[in-house]
Nucleic acid binder design. Structure first.
Length: 891
RNA sequence: GCGGGCGUGGCGGAAUGGCAGACGCGCCGGACUUAGGAUCCGGUUCCGAAAGGAGUGGAGGUUCAAGUCCUCUCGCCCGCACCA
């Protein structure tokens, strides 16, 4: 049942469906049928320069459209319909993101094949799409779970494999126990699975990856080209890519039995030092290199075990102190750190844990001997998995050093620092700002920013290190241990190793006879699928049973729409060239990184394969806000309220039970009302608060339009655009008509503000209603205004306007009408109102002829009683005149 | 902690530095009516009888003029979170 925002009226909504209302059901069904019969939304061939690709993110086929869907598709459809009127050749397709876990879970629960379940949901959803009246070209539908589609996922995989962009490696990866599969980094949100929100654990597995990191720099740089993307999305992507400039620096590892200790310097020759093994670290602060007092490895760093094994081989008398049982203790520490939830381990407020491993290193820049630790805060995946630590100038290192009693050495002085501030003992936190170099031998006195560059040059010259750029972005883990996805087209042969499935054997199809028990990957249990022969040597071999992340499917579906029936290629290059890039993409902000980053990567990779000629898939992006509603507080059993007693709003969701079913709204008020309300109630990119009252308001508005047209059919028949207004009332109406045209056009075209466009149409309706009720306006003008009103409303509420267009006898189908052109001369008023201010306060309003000069306006203003009064006899010091608007007298 | 966004009537929301509150909801009054929860007309930021005054989270500033620009500050929302 539909919920009300008003606690007092949470009962059955009022029955506004009474007499005098338009028959929305018949009207909407009729036009949906007509559009289908006419193939009204077929995509034009050879679009040329007028092409416009409107795309909304395709849905997962859950079987039911929810209000969020209605919102995205209402936005996209209003735009598509408007652009067609504006003469664009519009591609507006739809499909289904049809692979994924829910179908597989349903299979386990109901013992129905995921394909059957999914196809059923798709059929239901298409019916609901139809009921909303969206102008989609269904002949271009792409359904990702069909072999005709996913074979091209496999084909792309092979192409990427050939290029080295798809590869297999073992790594510590995110595992979701609930979903029984691994997840990519992008799919873990605050330590939880993006889909089921259960905690993610870490596993070490061998998996398939896409080398998105190869495009890190371009993915970052090209964000600057995306001028019509929301800044917030671009910032999120920049942060995710996480570019850092710095240097890779080599420290030297001392033998396990070295007599050197921290505080001492390297004694031997430079040549002997060079002979020692390297420990390479990445730092963004080469200017602090002289302040290194220890080093830290990630606990799981593969080198660590060997380092401590060497310690144990040394006679205890010659070891570093505190190294009894070091191998065991290191192993235990590492095991604990790895097992510990990665997201707890890496939380900023996590207590720093560490262990000295009994080894020392030499800083080649100054010969300092420093101890080596392992610690929970150092990550294996970033940089080299080892760091230099400068406690004086890095807060993490500072905390660690303080806890373990490691010396702190200042090498950068704050500007104008006192002797007190320069004392390490007085330091209560790291100083991480720029400053002046101290205690840094040849670089002392330089400012630290300059020193950064000089030191890197010095490192490169001496062979101690080199300039380097690191990214937080990791490669995209695409293996999934689930059935309902695209099989990865790889074969394991005992003799030949990993062998790709030959192209001509694609698709590797999902078997129809898999058993869904809920335990393990069903694909692995289908003998006929797994057992195959090696394409190279023909001996018995096994197929890969992992499937691809479903984000692979959605990374190129917008390309398939350009050429959906191609059986020889994913799409023909020239068809993609015709339509790409997508001119306007619309979808939820939740994909700010995920889908939008993957798709950008895919397009760049396909470009480098010669398949597309654009660098970016989506020119403009509109991230629409979520749909919220009031909800029942589970504790009180009443509508949740804030401290002021006002109802609280939250995203419509199953768990809160505050979803409104679009089908109920369509049934009660019709799709036109639903669409109008959704677009009118808030700007597209903002949150939309559901309101039953607001919906009713839109319904009443459409009813007023209905009655207004039908009771003025005669005027409609006489509609004449070229009628010359005679009276004041006619000039005013003519102005409003043309003003509304201009306003609707610019609001949609330039700002995508549908709410204000609709408000303008409402103002026109109000003006027409007044005009229709008086005898001051001639029928040809009134008719023209009514005709215009229908055209302005058509993108938002297409059914009722189609019906009224026909009944009014305006001729042709409204779909084929161009958007009306406004008459600029009608927007020129013969009289204007001038606001007269004295010292910025409004004292009078003057109605003057539009062509009145400043002198004339001044004269009138100074003659005005109120103005004279507020001047109080003072002489004006200055008068500012804004033509046709305002006169400000300063005194 | 860092980054981003947002604070305007009873509510959703409008305002290229130039009339704050368009449009809609709600509310108030009136008309039609057996009736109105339909429809139509009028009113509706606050204080004030009025004249007038105040007003866009708060404090400053720039300007003839600030919701809009600048500085500081408070509150809410979102994203990232030991990335060396």
């Amino acid at each position: 049942m539909v919920r009300s925002e008003d606690p007092q009226m949470a009962q059955e909504p009022k029955n506004v469906v009474a007499e005098g209302v338009y028959p929305h059901k018949e009207v909407e069904e009729r036009w949906q049928r007509i559009w289908e019969e006419r193939k009204q939304f077929a995509t034009p061939e050879n679009p040329g320069r007028d092409k416009y690709y409107v795309l909304e993110m395709f849905p997962y086929p859950s079987g039911r459209l929810h209000m969020g869907h209605c919102r995205v598709y209402s936005i996209g459809d209003a735009l598509a319909r408007f652009l067609r009127m504006r003469g664009k050749k519009v591609l507006h397709p739809m499909g289904f993101d049809a692979f994924g876990l829910p179908a597989e879970n349903a299979a386990i629960k109901h013992q129905v094949h995921p394909a059957e379940w999914t196809e059923r949901c798709i059929a239901e959803m298409k019916q609901q799409f139809r009921m909303m009246g969206f102008s989609l070209d269904w002949d271009r539908e792409a359904i990702t779970c069909r072999p005709e589609y996913y074979r091209w996922n496999q084909w792309f995989f092979l192409k990427l494999y050939e290029k080295g962009l798809a590869y297999k490696k073992a790594a510590a990866i995110n595992w979701c126990e609930t979903c029984q599969t691994v997840l990519a980094n992008e799919q873990v949100e605050q330590g939880a699975c993006w889909r089921c929100h259960n905690p993610v654990t870490v596993r070490n597995l061998e998996q398939w990856w896409f080398k998105i990191t190869q495009y890190a720099e371009e993915l970052l740089a090209d964000l600057d080209k995306l001028e019509d993307w929301p800044e917030s999305v671009k910032i999120m992507q920049r942060n995710w890519i996480g570019r850092s400039e710095g240097a890779l620096v080599k420290f030297k590892l001392l033998p396990a039995d070295t007599p050197l200790r921290p505080g001492m310097k390297w004694q031997g020759s430079e040549e002997e030092l060079r002979q020692l093994p390297d420990i390479e670290i990445f730092t963004t602060r080469p200017d602090t290199l002289f302040g290194v007092t220890f080093m830290v490895f990630a606990p799981e760093h593969p080198q660590v075990a060997e380092l401590v094994a060497e310690v144990e081989r040394v006679d205890p008398a010659h070891r570093a102190p505190e190294t009894e049982n070091i191998a065991k203790r290191v192993e235990e520490f590492a095991a604990k750190a790895v097992v510990e939830d990665r997201f707890l381990r890496t939380a900023a407020d996590r207590e720093k844990e560490g262990l000295f491993i009994g080894r020392y290193a030499v800083n080649q820049l100054n010969g300092d001997v420093v101890p080596i630790y392992i610690a929970n805060f150092v990550l294996m995946e970033y940089g080299t998995g080892a760091i230099m630590a400068v406690p004086a100038h890095d807060q993490r290192d500072f905390e660690f050093a303080t806890k373990f009693g490691i010396p702190i050495k200042m090498v950068i002085a704050p500007p104008l620092a006192t002797a007190e501030q320069l004392s390490e003992k007085s330091l209560t936190q790291a100083y991480d700002e720029p400053g002046v170099m101290i205690n840094s031998a040849p670089f002392d006195g330089l400012d630290s920013e300059t020193a950064k560059k000089k030191i890197v040059e010095y490192l490169e010259q001496k062979g101690y290190g080199q300039r380097s750029v690191q990214y937080k972005l990791r490669d995209w883990l695409i293996s999934r241990q689930r059935f309902w996805g695209t099989p990865i087209p790889m074969i394991y042969c005992d003799k030949c190793g990993i062998v790709p499935v030959p192209e001509d054997q694609l698709p590797v199809a999902l078997p129809a006879n898999a058993k869904f028990t809920g335990i393990g990957n069903p694909l692995a249990s289908v003998k006929e699928f797994v057992e195959t022969t090696c394409p190279k040597c023909s001996s018995p071999a096994r197929r890969e049973t992992d499937t691809m992340d479903t984000f692979v499917d959605s990374s190129w579906y917008f390309l398939r729409y350009c050429d959906p029936h191609n059986t020889r290629a994913p799409f023909a290059a020239e068809k993609a060239h015709q339509w790409m890039p997508v001119d306007q993409y619309i979808g939820g902000i939740e994909h700010a990184i995920l889908h939008l980053l993957y798709s950008r990567f895919f397009v760049k990779a396909l470009r480098d394969l010669g398949l597309v000629n654009c660098d970016e898939p989506f020119s403009r992006l509109l991230a629409q806000g979520m749909v919220t509603n009031t909800y029942i507080d589970k504790q009180t059993g009443k509508i949740a309220v804030d401290e002021h007693g006002r109802p609280k709003y939250a995203k419509m969701s199953k768990s809160l039970g505050n979803g409104v079913d679009p089908l109920e709204i369509i049934d009660r008020y019709g799709a036109d009302t639903a669409r109008l309300f959704i677009l009118f109630a808030a700007p597209a990119e903002k949150e939309l608060e559901w309101s039953d009252r607001g919906v009713e308001g839109c319904y009443r508005f459409l009813n007023r339009v209905w009655r207004l047209i039908l009771s003025n059919i005669d005027a409609c028949k006489q509609a004449n655009k070229n009628y010359q207004p005679q009276t004041r009332a006619e000039r005013d109406l003519n102005y409003t008509v043309n003003w509304a045209i201009q306003r609707v056009q610019t609001e949609i075209e330039e700002r995508h503000h549908f709410n204000t466009a609709i408000a303008a149409a409402m103002e026109l309706q109000n003006a027409l209603q007044v005009a229709a009720g008086s005898s001051d306006v001639a029928a040809p003008l009134l008719g023209y205004g009514l005709r215009t009103l229908l055209l302005l409303l058509f993108p938002f509420s297409p059914h009722i306007t189609s019906e009224l267009w026909e009944r009014a006898g305006f001729g042709g189908a409204i779909d084929d009408q161009p958007f009306p052109a406004y008459d600029p001369s009608a927007l020129v008023r013969d009289e204007v109102e001038i606001v007269v201010q004295v010292n910025g306060k409004i004292r009078a309003r003057l109605t003057v002829a539009a062509e009145a000069t400043e002198e004339q306006v001044r004269e009138l203003a100074f003659a005005d009683e109120k103005v004279v009064q507020s001047l109080g006899g003072k002489q004006p010091r200055k008068v500012i005149y804004v033509p046709k608007k305002l006169l400000n007298i300063v005194c």
